[in-house]
Design a protein around this nucleic acid. Structure first.
Length: 843
DNA sequence: ACCTACCGGGG
DNA sequence: GTGTACGGTAGGT
């Protein structure tokens, strides 16, 4: 065995422990899992010690439990005695209550007596709670995963130092294992802020382009990257390889070598870009094909694919991060890109691009031109390098979420906004002794959805092009409303404060709601959490002013902002545990009040109000100057409550507002602005999807550019006319009208026969294999019938076959018609001569 | 109006 | 695993 220093240290601790029985050790917890051992659930905490050793601490003393509120009219004490003897046998398995405690809790901010029901195993919880529910009592906290429950109750934070008293254990593992006698967060507040991160990327054999079939196509290259640990594995040799390239003899050897590299590097974090959805599932499938045991887990277990349609790949003891998920879900909102390819994301966040290599040709190069493989290997390594850099970039933000919310890195990486908020509230619930509310049942959730919330205020823009625009917005409007008006489930309509701070709703028209107010004496549970976020963020921003460029402070500020901004959405989100219709309704009511206030003031001061939505207002300056705008902002801010502030977002020399199509309700934001640096800011136009014809996207972008940058409508019209005529004359390359769709199931199993199914059927008829995953590329050709009747495969159709008229009507015109409407041009009648329009029916 | 299926990222 | 993504859209019924 060859130990590194850190392993050596861990081994010393271990043998020391063997002699003295109990030792103290500290670790940064990275992964928490549990195993059933001798009919008990045993928690395993994996992590790294401050001197760099990987260890596992197990806790045999933590018991599964949930809470029960006894039904009305029954005494807690009596019910506890009834429940204590519960024992259920199902399919030879025993589910039973081990003991019951009567405890004091708070339920929606009021004191209650509750029962803490302990059971033999975590799996007993759903069974026993169901049975108790049938007796008319109400169970709570029965769906908090055992490992999450452990973290919550022990009050520690993943990635932050944990102090443990422990005895050595002989459990088989890649790392020393200890059995804890006590577990508590360290007083030091030390954080694992530089974990060992290994980034991973694979390249696969791709003769079918986008149609990727792991069962058929091998992994050709695999790159891992950490500074000073850069390697590309490749199983085809070529001359003069770079020193980072390591040849192996086969794909199976590549997989074996990959295992060795992981064992050698001992990462805390294994990271990929879309690795939940691609790299790791692919590696798992290929390893299975060769019957290779992929025992990457520190307990020798193999990576596990969780979830059905949405895979998450978990490795015991190693945190698998899919940085794509975090960036798209959490960072994406504040990015300018609307596509989340590695190239686009790296360009925006790192100022670095992917290598310009044609990956479409990889299979061909692999088969015919192996001397060119070198550039693919370096491309592969570079992708792993970019992934590593992205992790470095976003890790501070992830770590802040871990610290604020107190859940594992693995989970934080994959959470949505609502889950982050809920996680935060759950942590505070434990701290405040509040019962964690249940998720709604299916019917309950449906009922919630029926109850439509009266939304924010929108001042509809008159579609047109405008000059010299200034944009203001309220800083964190919703969070500051919730905090300053004490909006919470338990402060609603208290008995002590009626009429003191009544929500400004027009009670005659607003869903005939009853009058609402919130307690002015007692702080609400929800409003307290959000106020804490706001004040913490204000402090962080102060520190940030003194330490400009401090990445950790910037990350903390970002995390706190994201959380605060998600609260309102959470309260009105039907599947939320702390859903509160009145809270959502009150928040938007106050928001309408505040935005209308600015709109009215702007009008009084002689600004032309163009558009207002929720928390922002767009004004046309006209004769007024930038200074006038700043003065206006100052006037408004003088009158606002402490926590609220109106910001000046930016000035824009030119902008276009576009009306929305009928049925496009809710998508009110549809505009494009040109900033002072000549950069376009486009909002609400259809995003890039591969199943829309390329030509439609191109034309839309070009039209916006011409209108805003050249300010020449006739040029824009001419451009569309040219495109339309080119389509009608089949001059546009057929590649630009191809529609791409991926088949999800077998052709026979489709109930509705859409165009893509027709394409698949045609392939089948020609004995081309089609199945789930097949990428269909087809065009709509001239002829009669439904669209599905006019479908031809890309290579069945000639340049002259496609139905230019279809693409004009269904793709090109819809993508630009509203833009032209805004400038008073009916693009349809411009491009189609009238007689053709009206006389068509006669022929 | 409602229902069903697909998109994203990856090669 | 104290489990089953998500929000948006096109086309068909």
């Amino acid at each position: 065995m060859n130990f590194e220093l850190s392993d050596f240290t861990a081994t010393l601790i271990y043998f020391y422990a063997l002699i003295f029985v109990v030792v103290k050790l500290s670790l940064y917890p990275l992964d928490v899992s549990y195993k059933i051992m001798n009919d008990r659930a045993v928690i395993h905490v994996y992590g790294r010690t401050p001197d760099g050793a990987q260890v596992c601490v197990k806790d045999e003393l933590f018991e599964p439990y949930f809470l029960v509120l006894p039904k009305k009219g029954s005494e807690a004490i009596e019910v506890s005695q009834e429940l204590a003897g519960m024992h259920i046998t199902q399919e030879d398995k025993e589910f039973f209550v081990t003991r019951v405690e009567v405890i004091r809790k708070r339920f929606i901010e009021k004191e209650v007596s509750a029962l803490k029901v302990f059971v033999n195993l975590p799996k007993s919880v759903p069974v026993v709670q169901e049975s108790i529910r049938k007796q008319g009592h109400t169970p709570f906290e029965f769906d908090i995963l055992f490992t999450k429950r452990y973290i919550l109750d022990k009050g520690f934070t993943p990635c932050m130092l944990l102090d443990v008293d422990a005895e050595p254990s002989t459990e088989n593992s890649k790392v020393p294992v200890f059995t804890a006698t006590s577990v508590a967060p360290s007083q030091t507040q030390h954080t694992l802020d530089s974990p060992r991160v290994l980034a991973l990327d694979i390249e696969t054999y791709n003769p079918l382009g986008k149609n990727i079939i792991a069962e058929q196509h091998p992994i050709l290259m695999l790159a891992v990257y950490a500074p000073g640990f850069e390697r590309v594995l490749c199983w085809k040799r070529f001359a003069n390889p770079d020193k980072t390239i390591e040849f192996v003899d086969s794909e199976s050897e590549l997989l074996e070598r990959f295992k060795q590299l992981i064992a050698e590097f001992k990462p805390d974090i294994l990271a990929g870009y879309y690795s939940d959805g691609f790299d790791l599932p692919y590696i798992i499938k290929r390893a299975a094909k060769y019957k290779i045991t992929l025992d990457l887990g520190l307990d020798h277990s193999e990576p596990r694919m969780m979830g059905r349609s949405q895979t998450q790949v978990e490795i015991t003891g190693i945190v698998h991060l899919d940085v794509f998920k975090f960036i798209r879900k959490i960072i994406g909102r504040s990015m300018t890109t609307d596509v989340f390819t590695l190239d686009a994301v790296a360009t925006e966040l790192l100022g670095d691009k992917k290598h310009a290599v044609d990956v479409e040709r990889l299979a061909h190069v692999w088969d015919n031109d192996s001397e060119k493989l070198a550039e693919y290997c370096l491309y592969n390594l570079h992708d792993a390098r970019l992934t590593h850099k992205l992790v470095e970039k976003v890790f501070p933000v992830m770590l802040e979420f871990v610290k604020i919310i107190g859940q594992n890195l693995f989970d934080i990486n994959r959470m949505t906004f609502s889950q982050l908020v809920e996680g935060l509230i759950m942590k505070h619930a434990v701290l405040c002794n509040e019962i964690i509310l249940n998720k709604p049942s299916f019917t309950e959730e449906r009922q919630r959805r029926m109850h439509r919330l009266h939304g924010a205020f929108v001042y509809e823009p008159t579609p047109s092009v405008y000059k010299n625009i200034v944009v203001f917005d309220y800083r964190s409007l919703f969070p500051s409303i919730i905090a300053s008006h004490n909006i919470s489930l338990g402060t609603l309509n208290c008995s002590c404060c009626e009429d003191k701070d009544v929500v400004p709703i027009d009670y005659d028209t607003a869903n005939s709601e009853k009058k609402m107010w919130y307690c002015t004496r007692r702080k609400g549970f929800i409003s307290m959490i959000i106020e804490d976020l706001i004040t913490r963020r204000a402090r962080v921003k102060e520190l940030l002013k003194q330490n400009k460029g401090d990445k950790m402070l910037a990350a903390r500020s970002e995390a706190l902002k994201v959380l605060a901004n998600s609260f309102y959405g959470y309260l009105s989100f039907s599947p939320a545990r702390w859903y509160c219709f009145a809270c959502g309704e009150s928040t938007t009511a106050w928001s309408r009040f505040y935005i209308k206030k600015v709109i009215a003031a702007a009008g009084e001061q002689g600004f032309h109000v163009l558009y207002g939505d929720t928390d922002s207002i767009f004004l046309e300056l006209g004769e007024k100057s930038h200074d006038d705008a700043i003065h206006f902002q100052e006037c408004i801010n003088k009158e606002l409550p402490d926590l609220m502030e109106l910001d000046l977002e930016s000035f824009y020399p030119r902008g276009i507002f576009v009306g929305v199509r009928a049925g496009e309700g809710g998508a009110k934001k549809k505009y494009a602005l040109l900033d002072e640096k000549d950069v376009m800011k486009i909002r609400g136009f259809e995003t890039v999807r591969r199943n829309s014809a390329r030509i439609a996207r191109d034309v839309q972008r070009e039209v916006l550019e011409i209108v805003l940058k050249k300010a020449d409508i006739s040029k824009a019209v001419a451009h569309v006319k040219k495109t339309v005529s080119d389509l009608q004359l089949n001059k546009i390359p057929i590649g630009k009208v191809v529609i791409q769709t991926q088949l999800q199931r077998n052709v026979e199993s489709y109930a509705s026969f859409g165009p893509h199914v027709a394409a698949a059927q045609r392939m089948k008829n020609k004995s081309i294999p089609v199945g789930p995953g097949t990428m269909l590329r087809y065009v709509i050709t001239k002829g009669a019938g439904k669209i599905r009747d006019k479908v031809r495969l890309e290579d069945e159709a000639l340049q002259t076959d496609y139905d230019g008229e279809y693409y004009v009507q269904n793709h090109v015109i819809p993508s630009v018609e509203k833009i032209f409407e805004a400038v008073g041009v009916d693009i349809l009648s411009e491009v189609l001569p009238k007689k053709q329009h009206t006389l068509q029916g006669f022929f």
